[in-house]
């Protein structure tokens, strides 16, 4: 099964799906998000890049309201994000999230990790959820380990399961917060391959990452953040070869040296 068959991602490609308008966020005195305006269209892959502490994670987390905002609006598929309660939980089911530290449920098997949401949130029958989960695990290459626990898998395998777990909810958009930065170098590729695959199948994605290879192959747009603000937006090619802001030049100079 592919993303096209299982979710409405390919329909209406190019329409605005996630729209942030004049979003502000403070942590105490710290102005963590400043005047954020960002529109992600259906089927688009946006890579968010920027120095540590620039607000990339915070931006990502506001989109499924794991982090609240002070002012401004965030719309998903034409609807403002609900503030709390059942509606908020329902929204989160529509937005897949993949964390840097995987966060697989430690007391559940790999299969149960993937089926928990569909069974408890979507009310799917266990047999159907299992079947669908096995298809997704097959797709990320972990099907043969379905009965194991997270601790028995490598980091790269855990992250692929985390992706399958998010996909099981048929999300409209997937958020990735530095999905490969906790991984050993040899495992980074296996995770990026899954992500490139998803992007090719038309999934709308917001990806915080410093993997330039991924940005170049899969991203439609790069958003560069510094000090809580979006400083520059461009195609990956333009951004990496010909950044216009000094902040971006400086930043790219640093990461390219490594």
């Amino acid at each position: 099964m592919t993303a096209q068959e299982s979710s409405p991602v390919s329909a209406g490609r190019g329409e605005p799906l996630v729209v942030l308008k004049d979003v502000q966020k403070h942590f105490g005195q710290l102005h963590a998000l400043k005047d954020i305006d960002l529109t992600v269209t259906r089927g688009e892959v946006v890579v968010v890049i920027g120095p540590s502490g620039s607000g990339k994670s915070t931006l990502c987390r506001t989109i499924n309201r794991l982090e609240t905002i002070d002012s401004g609006t965030i719309m998903l598929d034409g609807q403002p994000l609900p503030e709390e309660g059942k509606e908020l939980a329902a929204l989160r089911a529509e937005v897949g999230m993949v964390f840097q530290s995987f966060n697989l449920f430690a007391h559940k098997t790999i299969l149960e990790n993937v089926t928990l949401g569909p069974i408890k949130v979507r009310g799917m029958k266990k047999a159907d959820a299992d079947k669908r989960a096995m298809e997704l695990l097959e797709r990320v290459g972990i099907a043969h380990q379905a009965e194991k626990y997270a601790a028995q898998l490598s980091g790269g395998q855990q992250q692929r399961v985390a992706i399958a777990r998010a996909l099981a909810m048929d999300p409209k958009v997937m958020l990735f917060d530095e999905p490969t930065s906790a991984l050993d170098p040899e495992m980074i590729k296996e995770v990026l391959d899954v992500m490139v695959d998803l992007a090719e199948q038309g999934m709308t994605m917001v990806v915080v990452t410093h993997e330039m290879g991924f940005a170049r192959t899969a991203a439609d747009r790069v958003v560069f953040m510094a000090d809580g603000a979006i400083v520059e937006e461009n195609t990956p090619e333009e951004f990496f070869t010909n950044p216009s802001s000094d902040r971006a030049k400086d930043f790219l100079g640093k990461i390219l040296k490594h």
């Binding site: 929204l91 989160r92 529509e94 937005v95 897949g96 999230m97 964390f99 530290s101 949130v121 777990r165």
Partner: peptide, 16 residues
């Protein structure tokens, strides 16, 4: 905290 966050992220309400 990541465990509860991951649970919320797949749409589980507080009690679940």
């Amino acid at each position: 905290a990541g465990q509860a966050e991951a649970a919320r992220a797949i749409g589980l309400p507080f009690t679940l």
